[in-house]
Nucleic acid binder design. Structure first.
Lengths: 181, 181
DNA sequence: AACACTATTGTTAGAGC
DNA sequence: AGCTCTAACAATAGTGT
């Protein structure tokens, strides 16, 4: 207790911290804070959250409730649904236009449908992605990645290089997520 | 200013909030807090963060710096790298074993290499994923999703149903991320 | 439903080990 | 590097409007 002035929380400056060392320390502290906040949303509110953080040096840290794969799958499902809806909207629009032109006695040719073709493609892409990434996720978990983290407050740090064979600390996630999604 | 007792911040109880209404309100407030915290890490620390939140009702909210696609790509790259490293380790191990057995005058047959085949497959899967999802991301951005959000504190709420044709508010992200990843 | 207020608790920067 | 401490500042639950 020598100095008294420059202690305690400072106002959060929204500019890049210049000192490499304090940037690293601040990063760790705030990342912990972020993950804690996330865990304070998941259970009390019944939400699912996935967080992917790349450190200043590019090291990845993952938080996931119930786990990151579920979140990514949910995201892709959401995209798929959105595209499906858009596709239907476009179809209806085209039908509508077609109908209107017929009624006005104008010619109709199917080239306009091309506008819709890109979307069919997209759907196929999304299906392929889902299949593929399910395979990868399963295999990756089986063979090396252990698991990322449940929202138990902990998180998984892809310890790559030399410890690729370390399988210790594989938490199982048992949050039932009482079914409101 | 009628009552004075039960106001202000309560201790964060780690159990599911029972009242549907306050669960929704609490979710919104804390989600905002979470995204703010994230933005207080990105710029000052030079980190990249992606957050995917599914509300109690399954509605998705995205935060991304510089944007969610970059984060997902980085994640897949990381996985790919990790698997590559693991593959090499396994190969070396097998070579080592092979060598040792030869030196001991025992027989060697190549069945053990099968242990390595799953990994080659995995690599192919990952390559396919990357290609496919790059296509999807590009097409989706072009055709409907506008963009998710930079870490400017805002975030994108997949407004699906009826507003699939609303293309307003498409922020461009211009954080150069001064290259420490 | 969404904002303003505010008592209270939570978070955290820097210091000291 | 990682930990504890703690002054200062931030976040937020409940209330009001």
């Amino acid at each position: 207790m020598t100095s008294k002035a420059t202690r305690g929380r400072q106002e959060v400056e929204m500019k890049k911290l210049q000192k490499e060392s304090s940037r690293q320390v601040t990063f760790s502290k705030r990342r912990n804070g972020l993950f804690k906040k996330a865990s304070e949303i998941c259970l009390p509110c019944g939400a699912n959250i996935g967080i992917i953080v790349f450190s200043p040096k590019g090291k990845p840290f993952i938080f996931g409730h119930p786990n990151i794969e579920t979140i990514l799958d949910q995201l892709y499902d959401e995209c798929e649904e959105a595209l499906e809806k858009l596709k239907e909207e476009k179809k209806k629009r085209i039908e509508h236009t077609k109908e209107a032109m017929k009624n006005k006695g104008e010619f109709w040719w199917d080239e306009a449908i091309d506008d819709n073709m890109g979307l069919e493609e997209l759907e196929a892409y999304l299906k392929a992605i889902e299949e593929l990434r399910n395979n990868v996720a399963r295999k990756a978990n089986e063979s090396m990645m252990c698991d990322v983290v449940a929202d138990s407050g902990g998180y998984f740090d892809f310890g790559i290089a030399a410890d690729a064979f370390n399988f210790d600390h594989c938490p199982s996630h048992d949050f039932g997520a009482a079914g409101q999604l």
